[in-house]
């Protein structure tokens, strides 16, 4: 049985799709059979981030409406062997997804995969609720700013009530906090909320902290998940996140501002 993980946030533009792509890639690189599903019908982006937009023929809506088989719609990632992508439709609207249809798709995928990542659309309406409904775990992506934290708080409320586990009274969804776009220098100057404040307000476990990084934008535009950029801080931070997700104990990095020493400036090494 696969573990179903929803990547969600409430607020848009905080890095859900980037994180879903990077974490899915990381899980697959560690040998887990992984599929990442784009739930953002009408505004699909995951295929671009994963660099497979030219290979999309069928999508999630086609599968749910019986116009294509699941195996026809699944796209095999070119870089990592165990990774598949199920793209969203760009032309349909969100009403095209049904809970029964999603349940069937997830059930079928569960037989073949170890991890199913659901990349949620922004907002708290139908699409976002559908993406989280069947989840076992949730990664709540939050930026160090007050509006993002409040929206994440709202999403946590929904995770605790509008999901199958909640409705059936089963064990609650495991909630993980993923802080993205963290800039320790701007935290020190008071421009950004600091890590401890966010943790205190949201009161859930931290699974990872991704520093604000040029590597992320570069990766998005190239269609290569940032996890592949092992020399970048963001790439390493996502790799750490994946390790924690599969139960390893990894110390937190990138949360403090490191002044570059003269030596490291001269030799350009020791990037942390």
């Amino acid at each position: 049985m696969a573990k179903i993980i929803v990547v969600t946030s409430g607020k848009g533009g905080v890095g859900k799709t980037t994180s879903a792509a990077a974490i899915a890639t990381g899980l697959a690189l560690r040998g887990n059979k992984t599929v990442v599903i784009d739930f953002d019908v009408g505004l699909r982006n995951l295929d671009l981030i994963m660099g497979c937009e030219r290979r999309v023929v069928y999508d999630l809506v086609n599968v749910i409406q019986g116009e294509a088989g699941l195996s026809q719609a699944l796209i095999r990632d070119k870089r990592v062997e165990n990774l598949h992508i199920l793209p969203a439709s760009q032309t349909r609207d969100k009403e095209a997804l049904t809970r029964e249809g999603i349940e069937k798709v997830l059930e079928t995928l569960s037989k073949d995969f170890d991890y199913i990542l659901c990349d949620s659309p922004a907002g708290i309406e139908g699409g976002a609720q559908l993406a989280m409904y069947f989840a076992d775990e949730a990664i709540v992506v939050t930026n160090p700013e007050i509006s993002s934290v409040r929206d994440s708080d709202r999403i946590l409320g929904l995770l605790a009530s509008k999901t199958r586990r909640a409705e059936r009274g089963e064990e609650a969804i495991k909630e993980h906090l993923l802080i993205t776009r963290y800039n320790p220098l701007r935290v020190d100057t008071g421009d950004m909320l600091n890590l401890e404040d966010i943790r205190e307000i949201l009161a859930i476990d931290l699974i990872g902290l991704i520093p604000e990084s040029e590597a992320v934008l570069r990766a998005s535009n190239q269609g290569v998940p940032v996890t592949h950029d092992a020399s970048s801080d963001a790439g390493q931070a996502y790799t750490d996140t994946v390790s924690r997700l599969i139960g390893e104990d990894v110390p937190l990095r990138f949360h403090e501002y490191q002044k570059k020493s003269l030596l490291s400036r001269m030799f350009g090494g020791g990037r942390r």
Binding site: D153, R154, L156, G157, A172, L202
Partner: peptide, 25 residues
């Protein structure tokens, strides 16, 4: 929704809620 997640216990005429009351609740 917290009703479902963390039930608030009724005591006398009052209630006890354990957990974080989140935005929108």
């Amino acid at each position: 929704p917290a009703e479902l997640a963390v039930p608030a216990d009724s005591i006398g005429g009052g209630r006890i809620f354990r957990g974080t009351v989140r935005s929108g609740q």
